[in-house]
Design a protein around this nucleic acid. Structure first.
Lengths: 346, 346
DNA sequence: ATATAGATTGACAACGTTTTACAGCTTTGT
DNA sequence: ACAAAGCTGTAAAACGTTGTCAATCTATAT
């Protein structure tokens, strides 16, 4: 069905002015007297007139749309954290009158997938984009930055040299791990193990590196038997602990999980083997997942302010889009230790 | 920074043809000879040329964008189910080369909020929209349908009269409730209670109505003491059970929760009072939340194929956008009973 | 009354594409 | 050799805005 829509010519005709004047009214320019403005506004209201966005963009206006790119690498589906990130971006963008076009990148190594992303920018569908799950040095992001597009990236480390149209938001995985180790060490633990996330992801690697350097800093030995593989999924925590217990070797007294889901899985497996948390084993998570406070035992964890982080990143991106000068290019969010019931003094 | 972008004039000049020919190549028209086509494509590739989408739309093409509208009514944040819905729409739309603009409607009774939504349509930012959490008879949706926009709505009941540009997707809450009651009744339960969702939401009301008629159908008495208030949130299940147990009255032998989160909360409260699930109390959830299989005890629940539902709705919407004739206007998804460990024969 | 500054308005060329109408050039059948 | 028919390619008119420039009013000061 063809949608009948008034255009500015029609409004101008009905209001007895020129299209220019209608445009001036729409864009709130100062040089139109109240009487004329009111007359035009009345006609606009009466006809439900809304300017055609494509025409506005074509004539040089912003799209007032930002892209939100989620790198899925397999598992994007039903995840409360991802939802929080998306909602956080959308709600914040909305505050500034911006819309969000969300796109999922299945595989950053696939030419087709990347072409899709580049096209969104080159088509001029969006004014800028936020990338979650990609490193800011990823080649295609470099390409976008070089081409002059404005991007924001949630990364694990800041860009080596800041560029005006690249905003990098990090949270300090490394510092978080140090908090976890220091806390456990303070409770008297020396036998500390860890369940890693995917090591082919930067966040997996930085967490593990953080763990290693934190252990060194606290003068604790890293026991290779207690460094378990995981993939940020709940089941991987379960499986890792099953395997560990199954080997019949000595257990650590504390475990640091790459995230809360992994910690849940680990605790589930521990329970099944009669290892009580926190009596027999202290467990620390990472992220402060929505369920962590409700979990039994309530999970001690390293809280990351994801929502706030994305909110700040969105705000910065929009600021950079609207005014290319004088805006923060680096956002560092701190982690904090949330002490609940899953750790115990030894 | 100004983005340097080739336009079709430039491509035409470099390829030694006219702009029209470039356009014909881009749009894959038949009447351009292979030699010319190749020549033009080469130049396009070489210069990373991508047609300006606004210009295309302005000249009468589709936006190839659909709106995804989430009605939040307060609680939209960190919810795995919502994420699944969003991802499902985006991934499916992507299959057809469509983009998704996600928008959150905070309050369907707020004029400003509704105006924002209408504007997105009237600006011609999107070709159609999907609404989650609104009834298809909601006035502003009626307005959109009347204005000729193509919309898809996840509703609890089909529209009274089908319209070519309105697609309604339902899942049978009512039938789901009947399955739950019938299952419990089959296990020998007669004392069945329920924890409702928000009664100001259609899904809350239809579930409760479904419960009532299912009880009638199974010739079971509804005990008003066992009809508990909830709001679809985990805590409301906890609170409802706390209140119930606190009253010191006889307990039902089974509870049907408005969704799995509420069931989790209810079970948590039951556990705290030493009421074992399923030994002392059977509990059935609704939705089949991602956590339900992992929950302890694994939750028996009425599974709703949300992802599949949204996928079908998206496909239908796009079909309706591209071809206004001969497309399904009604999508009914069935629920299914997933038997796990939270119910027991009495 | 006149000059002048300032306020208001309108005409028109962009913006980058699609699409229509048509002109020029080949074929093809006779 | 000629007309009809098919191919290619071109020119120009949309599409609906914005923004610049110049023209026209209006009020104020002289």
């Amino acid at each position: 069905m063809k949608i009948a829509k008034a255009n500015s010519t029609e409004i101008a005709r009905l209001a007895g002015v020129s299209r220019s004047t209608v445009s001036r009214v729409i864009n709130n320019y100062a040089n139109v007297p109240p009487r004329t403005r009111e007359k035009v506004l009345a006609v606009i209201r009466q006809h439900n007139y809304v300017p055609n966005i494509s025409a506005q963009i074509l004539a040089g206006k912003r799209t007032r749309t930002i892209g939100l790119f989620l790198i899925s690498q397999g598992n994007v589906a039903s995840d409360a954290l991802t939802n929080m990130l998306i909602v956080s971006v959308i709600e914040n963008a909305s505050e500034y009158g911006y819309y969000v076009l969300t796109h999922i990148i299945r595989d950053t190594h696939d030419t087709e997938s990347i072409k899709d992303v580049m096209d969104i920018f080159y088509q001029h569908r969006i004014d800028g984009g936020i990338f979650i799950g990609a490193a800011s040095r990823e080649p295609f992001i470099e390409d976008l930055v070089k081409a002059g597009f404005t991007v924001g990236v949630v990364d694990q480390e800041l860009a080596e040299r800041p560029e005006p149209n690249r905003i990098v938001s990090t949270f300090n995985n490394d510092a978080g791990m140090k908090m976890a180790v220091a806390y456990l060490s303070g409770l008297g633990h020396t036998d500390i193990g860890t369940i890693n996330g995917n090591m082919n992801r930067l966040s997996g690697r930085t967490k593990y590196d953080g763990f290693l350097s934190a252990m060194r800093m606290c003068s604790l030995q890293v026991n290779a038997d207690w460094v378990l593989e995981g993939d940020f999924q709940e089941n991987s925590g379960y499986d890792a602990v099953q395997a560990l217990v199954g080997r019949g070797i000595a257990l650590p007294t504390a475990l640091i999980a790459a995230n809360d889901s992994v910690a849940f899985g680990a605790i589930r497996a521990l329970k099944e083997h009669g290892v009580r948390v926190p009596e027999d084993m202290s467990v620390i998570g990472f992220d402060d997942h929505a369920m962590s406070a409700k979990h039994h035992p309530a999970l001690t964890t390293i809280r990351v302010e994801f929502a706030d982080m994305l909110k700040r990143l969105t705000t910065c991106l929009i600021a950079a889009i609207e005014d290319e000068t004088a805006v923060a290019r680096e956002i560092v969010s701190d982690c904090s230790l949330v002490v609940r019931d899953s750790c115990r003094r030894i």
